[in-house]
């Protein structure tokens, strides 16, 4: 079952911290957002395989935008 990783706050995508296709465990770092000149790490909500990123570095995201999909 696929689970979406959503943005906890609005900001800019600073870096992707996991590889597409790799397996991730809950609480692993998925990517890093920048808001108010501060880095905020987004963690995996569940165990699984990182299917895809819906964003790329430099994208501006809003709260609740889908960032990645884990299955």
């Amino acid at each position: 079952m696929a689970e979406e990783v959503c943005a906890p706050l609005s900001g800019k995508v600073l870096s992707l911290a996991a590889e597409v296709g790799s397996s991730v465990e809950e609480d692993d770092e998925i990517l890093v957002l920048e808001a108010l000149k501060m880095e905020t790490v987004v963690y995996a909500p569940c165990d699984g395989r990182l299917k895809e990123f819906k964003v790329k570095v430099g994208d501006q995201v809003e709260e609740d935008d889908v960032l990645a999909v884990i299955e």
């Binding site: 906890p8 706050l9 609005s10 108010l36 905020t40 790490v41 963690y43």
Partner: peptide
């Protein structure tokens, strides 16, 4: 709690 995002609430 590392998954607690308070930044925007604090603003």
């Amino acid at each position: 709690d590392k998954k607690n995002y308070l930044l925007m609430f604090a603003m």
